[in-house]
Structures are given as structure tokens and as C-alpha cells.
Design a protein around this nucleic acid. Structure first.
Lengths: 193, 193
DNA sequence: TTTATAATGGACCGTGCGGTCCGTTACATG
DNA sequence: CATGTAACGGACCGCACGGTCCATTATAAA
């Protein structure tokens, strides 16, 4: 009956997300998107709607990806405190790789559009909530395991860790130096004592 | 001989900075700038050069402003630890005010342009260095005064505080809730113990 | 093989962009 | 008052943007 889609929608969405992630919303043109996704404007509009719709879908796609990774990390069979430390370590390595310098997509979105774009802002807040939830779980577990100070409020600590890792990613964009990032990560873990 | 300038260059530069700060570089048009600055395109080009030149001047203007404020704060006649805490408090109040939700201009620039624009990136790094330097001074003083743990490395702590306050500002953009920000600030100060 | 159908490429549109240019204006000087 | 000069407003330019539309194409079903 119909000509079948020659492209994988999820793959295309991922490619769109990569572009938004690297360039930001405003600086991304439809040409950038169609080039990266390998389809024409008409197909893009047919499948994903307008630029802003696609942007929102990209955020949701990122949230899915991140939440998968973060849930996976939270379930790693190692002391929770170690897992938290390794999340910071991994973030450092990512910043120092060329690809990682673009930081966290949610972070970028919060910075660029969260104030002016309520819809995107809410999606970003939800996404950050996923990260906070993962940290919360880990902090709780770490307290049970005895490696994290039980006097700390787990919610407050999780919120802090979310802010700290995002702050580190941000600093890393302007100043991708291992020593600086190491200092930030090491100090950020002190409140766990 | 010549018709004198009817506007104050510094004031106009400040107005340009406000626009870039609120909207970001890409989303700011020349019309936005001329409207805010109260002059025409030709005068803008005559006095400030192209959009990117004006953007760089805005960053420098911000650095001057910030460094003034920050130096002033660092010199306040109060225990350094208290000054640090009040810097976080002030940041929280600013985020919760409508105007403050746009965060820190350097922070925004780091997020939006630091990766793709080397010149701006370097200026942003310098600016963050000013903040780090102010924290460094305060930490050192706090250690002498006996309110900050002397075992802490002052440089590492200053770097951490810079990342933490910027992380908090970032989270505040997506989630401007007092309780969350309070948690972040309180926990961020624990490494001083 | 024919037919119905939907994805496709690319021409096309109006708009607003960053940037240039020049005639006009208002003043400091003589 | 006359004149030289520099800042000014705004018309103007080419371009790329986001978005629309439709003839063409390839295929699954009959």
C-alpha cells in the first residue's frame, strides 16, 4: 500500500538530539537537522512536526537515555559511595574528551531556554529530577552500607550532588583542565563524610 | 567641530550586556540591541563594531562589574566564612527574584558559546577565574580566622565553591524553589568544616 | 501488471537577520 | 552668521532562516 519508512525514527531522533546538544536550540538550523538526520524538510515536518516539537522530542529522548544510564549506574553492584565517585570520574573523562565538552544536554537547555520556554523548562526540570532521584537512591544505600554519614539528609545531599556535577560540567566547558575538575569532584564528595 | 555623543557609552554597553544576558547571544538580534541601547545600527557599528565585538565588550563589562562586586564582598569586615555563606544566600535571593533567574552571565556564555567560540571562551574562563580568586582569598582568610578547616586545600576549595555556586544558579533556572536551593547551598558549605 | 498510497526531494515563500551606506542634522568653531 | 564635521536615522542589501507545497517515486496490495 504505502512506501515504507527507509529510516529508523529513533535513530533520526537521536541524531537530531546530537545536533541540538552540540549547537544549542537557536544556533541549530533546519538544514543542520536534515543533514544530520538524512531526510528532507518535508519528511521532517511530516514525522516530527516543527523545529520546537523536534526539540522537545529530543529532550524526552535524552531523558530516556540518561535515565537508562543513571538507573543502570545506580544498580551497579558496588558500594554506593564508590558509584557516586565514579559518576564524577566519568563526568571528568567525558569533559576532557572533545565530544564531552558540550556538557549535559539538560544543563545546556536549562541555560539557554528554560527561562523563556516554559514547556521546555518543565521537561528539563523533570530530567534533572531523574538525576536527583538516582543520587537520592545511592545516598540512601550508601548510608545503609555505612560509607556515607547517616546524619546527612539524603534529599539535600542528592540535590547538592546534582548541582555540583552540573556545575563541574559547566566549569569544564570554559576550563577543561583535569586538575581543576579533580579538585571540584574531590571536594564535592566531602559532604558524604 | 563635531556633534557630541548624546549617550553615555558605558550605559549603552551595560544595556547591551543586559540583553545578551537575558536572551543569549544567538537569540539576540541587532534590533533588540539598538532598541535597548537607544541608538541606530549605524551608530552601533561606529561605536562598538559588529555584533560579536559588542558581545565581547559586554563580557568584559560584566567581568569589570562582577570583579568590583566580588572584590567588595571579599573585603567586607566580617568573618570570611560568613561572607562565603552570604554570597550563596544572595545568589538564592537573586534566583528567586524574576530578574535573577537569568543566572550568571558568564555561566550562560560558558554554556552557549564557550565550545564554539574560542575568543569568548577565553574571556569567560578569565571571568570565572576572578570569582575563583575571590573565593580563594576568602577561604585563606577563613582558615586564618579559624572558621574554615585548615586541612583543606584553599585552591581546591575555591574551585569547588565556584562550581557549586554556578551549579546552583543553573539548577535554579529550571527549578527556582527556595527549599531546593537552600539544600544545595547548605550542603556546599559542609566542606568548609 | 495495474493501482492506490504515502514518503520523498526540492522548488518555493515571506520574513527577519547581520551588515552597509549615505543624505540629513546639529553643533563647535571662526 | 557661515562653515566644516561627525554622529545620526533609516533605507537598503543579500542571505539564510523556518515553514509550505506538490509532482514524483517506489512499493504493497489487488
Amino acid at each position: 500500500m504505502a512506501r515504507p519508512r527507509e529510516f529508523d525514527t529513533t535513530v533520526a531522533l537521536d541524531q537530531a538530539m546530537q545536533v541540538f546538544w552540540s549547537k544549542g536550540y537557536e544556533a541549530t538550523s533546519l538544514s543542520d537537522l536534515t543533514a544530520a538526520m538524512g531526510l528532507s524538510k518535508s519528511s521532517l515536518y511530516e514525522t516530527f512536526g516543527c523545529k520546537h516539537d523536534l526539540f522537545m522530542s529530543s529532550i524526552e529522548h535524552y531523558k530516556r537515555t540518561v535515565s537508562d544510564q543513571v538507573v543502570a549506574a545506580a544498580e551497579i553492584d558496588a558500594p554506593a559511595r564508590r558509584v557516586i565517585a565514579s559518576l564524577f570520574d566519568r563526568a571528568i573523562e567525558r569533559i576532557l574528551s572533545d565530544e564531552g565538552r558540550r556538557g549535559c544536554f539538560l544543563n545546556n537547555c536549562a541555560s539557554e531556554v528554560a527561562i523563556h520556554d516554559d514547556v521546555a523548562g518543565r521537561a528539563v526540570r523533570d530530567g534533572l529530577g531523574l538525576i536527583e532521584a538516582a543520587f537520592f537512591k545511592l545516598v540512601k544505600r550508601g548510608q545503609v552500607e555505612g560509607h556515607i554519614n547517616e546524619e546527612r539528609d539524603a534529599r539535600a545531599t542528592a540535590r547538592f550532588l546534582t548541582a555540583a556535577i552540573n556545575g563541574m560540567l559547566l566549569i569544564g566547558k570554559a576550563n577543561p583542565e583535569r586538575e581543576t575538575l579533580r579538585d571540584i569532584a574531590d571536594t564535592a564528595l566531602l559532604p558524604l563524610n
